[in-house]
Design a protein around this nucleic acid. Structure first.
Lengths: 194, 194
DNA sequence: CGCGACGTTGATTTGCCTCAACGATTGTGG
DNA sequence: CCACAATCGTTGAGGCAAATCAACGTCGCG
């Protein structure tokens, strides 16, 4: 149960057996059935979760009612609600399982305790968020500067496994285009090839 | 010279006199004249800088040649190149002074030393990057889900001082719209009021 | 003074959206 | 096990937000 997450941690920092045990003791195993929510907008609980198996879609619904997808998080990713870290404002983030999913969850209180007892974890989570931030920035740049076709091609080459697990209209939402338009894009691309 | 940055640090962590002195010893004061670069795309030096006075524009030029502005960083902000942290790939980020600017710079090597000697700084930079990441996400969401007019209004209400220091076509670039279109937007808005 | 940087305005074009109708597939309750 | 409803993808017609191109006025500065 802990092998994957231990591998992940080991890539950033090295722990003693005691520290590892303490870390494990703060993690709660949780299963989430397909089409159910790990978190819904409006809840205030703060946590972070490591995905052992499955796929979670994290997305916002903004005031105008449009859905913006942040991630399709799969095995060996962290998900959580950044907004919940800094302030304690209500989250506007939704986390919904696209498949039956197994997670290891740490709540924000325990995470602070962890930082206190094993400060090395500050480093791990700093590195984690740095990487997330970096991908996010690249996405912002793509979104602002590149046409939909290019963004789509980038997406499938960066995440080749996602289109096989996730319905196409969600990929459209991720790219920020309408499902109809993505369909037309694909038609155009296959025509090009032939 | 260190009063502003010390205030910033104190909001996140508390330091002994010794730690503070060590921190100061790693900072290099640097002045950058208007219209010159603190960093240009292609350089590999990694650093992070705290702005004491002035204004820095950080932006990418993507393959298609279009400019995407990440920040207008002013007093009491950090700037740096995230991409340079994780990998050591060449940066694609440009940092250009829009005004004569005074900075405190720490290079990436010294920053690692700092982490080692005073692990508390892991926390400070984690919190810093969490906040940056949060604003970035909100911007991504706005960019994807909201029309230009709404984004413009958000911008001037969030950063009311920026339009007074920064030429309008750069604000257009920040918002991801053409300068002409921003001009037309403003015309429409002032007409609405009257 | 003259040049370059900046902002405005108008005409035209285009990337993408919305709406609507239609197959194909899946899954679920009777 | 079938029937019917969801869910999903495709295609076409029309519309709109924003880009592009071009011309022009204005200011600040060397």
């Amino acid at each position: 149960m802990f092998t994957e997450i231990d591998n992940y941690v080991a890539k950033c920092i090295s722990l003693t057996e005691n520290e590892k045990e303490y870390f494990h003791s703060l993690l709660n195993h949780q299963s989430v059935k397909k089409k159910t929510f790990l978190q819904q907008a409006g809840e205030t609980c703060g946590f972070e979760a490591y995905i052992i198996k499955g796929c979670i879609k994290s997305y916002y619904i903004d005031e105008n009612g449009s859905e913006v997808i942040l991630h399709f998080a799969v095995e060996n990713w962290w998900i959580g609600d950044i907004a919940n870290f800094s302030g304690n404002k209500k989250s506007t983030l939704n986390l919904e399982a696209l498949e039956d999913t197994e997670l290891l969850v740490i709540n924000i209180i325990d995470k602070e305790k962890l930082y206190e007892k094993v400060p090395k974890f500050e480093r791990m989570f700093r590195l984690m968020i740095q990487r997330t931030h970096e991908t996010m920035m690249n996405r912002l740049i793509s979104t602002m500067a590149k046409p939909a076709e290019e963004r789509y091609l980038e997406f499938i080459s960066k995440y080749p496994s996602i289109p096989q697990r996730v319905p196409q209209h969600l990929i459209a939402a991720y790219l920020g285009i309408s499902p109809e338009f993505l369909s037309k894009l694909k038609a155009k691309l296959t025509k090009k090839k032939s």
